[in-house]
Design a protein around this nucleic acid. Structure first.
Lengths: 149, 149
DNA sequence: ATTATCCCGATTGAGTCAATAGGGATTTGG
DNA sequence: CCAAATCCCTATTGACTCAATCGGGATAAT
């Protein structure tokens, strides 16, 4: 029940770009530095995100990456599904290869798996990157406040 | 975001035993047959469930396994945590080794991960094995009904 | 005593995943 | 036009996890 490391890096990378909207592109190295991601691995991930239309790239000197979609309109769920595939607690619900469950149709667990999947999917699909930016500010303020007290 | 095969086998095995309450013990072979589980692997899993106090064993001829806890009082969540460990969408929430997130405390995602975990945990913790038995009957009837129409 | 069954430790084999490597293409700036 | 910075693509490694199997030991009913 866990997302791949790659997926978490992807989310953090997009968040970083969303935070840096406005000025020019941000380089792989800057994102890697800011988010603690292995630079070479990040390169791979950004390439994939580019193919998915999540980010835009500029090549050459002064190049880098930009968010392609508005943080208000991009949900975490979309990114997760793109990188890791379907959100599902068990393989037979993911619809991948090997739907080899011998209980097809008469599975007592199916209802529960579906409910679990829908519950998580709802959380991911209702969280936008703008929400995360707001959250980060709130968390930071919260920490300052706790120091004051 | 998926449970191990082992965990699913464990759940199915316990369900099978719960359905067979009353008469004597059920052998590994019978459970394996009924639930489509590799027999030798099932042996391993039942041993583990026994150590966890979920099932009881009888050795020798006419031996086998019995549920040790009432299906009304045993939740799916308990079994999942025992076999697979903490239910969590990301490693840093599972509290295992390698809480190596470089964002400790200032992580914008933490709130969302927590919400996702709680949502799934709630589903698992509110589903008992009795619920699954009832569900299985309902599903079976549902299929009959759909054939009638 | 024999047989059915659980019991335990070790091990294999396959597969996934995180991460790295090498070298190519493109753009800016001088 | 050259050089540096940067993205771009494919392949590969190494580590680790996980599903499954094996061999043989202990126990209990008949």
């Amino acid at each position: 029940m866990s997302l791949s490391q790659k997926c978490q890096y992807a989310l953090r990378a997009i968040l970083e770009l969303a935070k840096r909207q406005g000025p020019g592109p941000t380089t792989t190295a800057e994102i890697a530095e800011a988010q603690g991601i292995p630079p070479r691995f990040l390169e791979l991930i950004l390439g994939q995100l580019r193919h998915g239309g999540f980010v835009e790239s500029r090549r050459g000197v002064r190049g880098g990456y930009l968010v392609q979609r508005s943080p208000q309109a991009l949900t975490v769920g979309e990114v997760i599904r793109f990188i890791d595939g379907a959100v599902a607690p068990v393989r037979c619900l993911a619809g991948r290869k090997g739907t080899d469950c011998p209980l097809f149709g008469s599975c007592a667990f199916m209802g529960m798996w579906t409910r679990a999947r829908d519950a998580v999917a709802d959380v991911y699909d209702t969280t936008t990157f703008q929400d995360l930016i707001d959250e980060e500010l709130a968390v930071a303020e919260g920490y300052v406040a706790s120091y004051c007290i």
